[in-house]
Each structure stands twice: as structure tokens, then as C-alpha cells.
Amino acid sequence: MRLTLKIWRQAGPDQPGQLVDYQLDNANEHMSFLEMLDVLNQQLIEKGEDPVTFEHDCREGICGSCGFMINGLAHGQEKGTTVCQLHMRHFQDGDTVVLEPFRADAFPILKDLMVDRGGLDRIIEAGGFISARTGSAPDAHSVLVPKDDADRAFDAAACIGCGACVAACPNGSAMLFTSAKVTHLGSLPQGSPEHTQRVLRMVNTHDEMGFGACSNHGECE
């Protein structure tokens, strides 16, 4: 499979960047998208060029490290699939693929396709927790949680913190991320005492970090 890749190259946070064209002749349909980039990088290194920097770790779609824009879509075109789980069989021989970093002022670019998503951590630090000191917990069965509540909490808690919602949102808003955590903790009886405070503090920090407001565009989901 032959591909033309247009990749955003940027040496550092305050450096100018641009899309650079690369030809890759030996991709194949069994590779994952990141393995395809690995192959490109090996070739660049052998040619004495700087390999493309991108963040990744688990390559199983769970750690949330990976993520960039593929042809204008966060994590590419497959719904519910992170870049590391995207496979090349969804592309065709001869395709041109544009790779850009997630763009938001709250996510400064560190290098090439790698951005700093620390703003999301600040939101959690502001209130995304239940204050329960280690060792103070009562028996796990002392509070029963209806299955539906537990399931709702789980669905919200499954957020992997990848930041794709921010990247996709026309407003650069992290409201989906924020509300996921609020819903997770708020759906559980353990989490309700701190609920109001949590919401205020998390939303405040969300705004302070420079994320945009949500206007329910629905791109983030």
C-alpha cells in the first residue's frame, strides 16, 4: 500500500510549524496506524532525518496517550476508536492522509503531533475526586448502589482522558471530559456529598485553563 502523508512538523512549542509531505511505499493493511508511522520513522532515521514525534504507550486504546487529527477528525474516521487501534485496512492504496496535532490553546504543541494536555489534570485536581482517606473506608457493602447507577457511573468513568473531545469541539471545550467525571462521581452515593462544590470548582478550572464553552455542537462524542 502506498500513501502520501502530510504531517504537521513543529520543532518546539514556540516554533513555527508546517505540513510536510512524505511518501510511504510499504504500508500494509494489517498494520495499525501507529505501526505505519513506526515504519515511516525507521526510514526517516535511516535517511538521517528527524523522526515524527507522537505520543503513545499502551497501543490498546485505554491509556489515552495517543491522539492526533487524521484528515480533520480526532483519532481518524472510525467511531469509538483511538489512533492506536485504527488499522490500515480502513485506508486505500494511493490515499493522501493529513496528520495534525490536536489544536486548542489549552493544549500547547510540544513537538510535531504531541501536545500538552495537562489542563485536563488541573480540572481533575480541582474536584474530580471523592475525599476518602486511605484506611477510613467502611465495608464495601455498607452502601448499596443500584445497578443502573453503578452502570451509569461506569459509562462516564470510562473516559480515557485523551482530549479528542477538545480537539473535535468547534469551541475547544473540555465540557465532555468535565461532565464525564462529574457524572461518574455524582451518580454514586459516595460522591454526592461533594457534588455541588465539585461541579463549581471543576467548571471554574475548566474555564481558567482556557478551554472554550460548550454550545452543544455534539462533535465531541
Binding site: A140, L144, P146
Partner: peptide
Amino acid sequence: NNIIDQCVALGVPFAREYSGYL
């Protein structure tokens, strides 16, 4: 056993039965 208690207190959404038990 303490681990399970602690994790539940922190809001870990373990699977539950319809009864609300873990």
C-alpha cells in the same frame, strides 16, 4: 479486603448485581 473498601469509597464503579451488592 481493605482494598475493595477503599476503592469503593473512592468511587470505583465495580460491577454490581441488581440488588446493589458487588
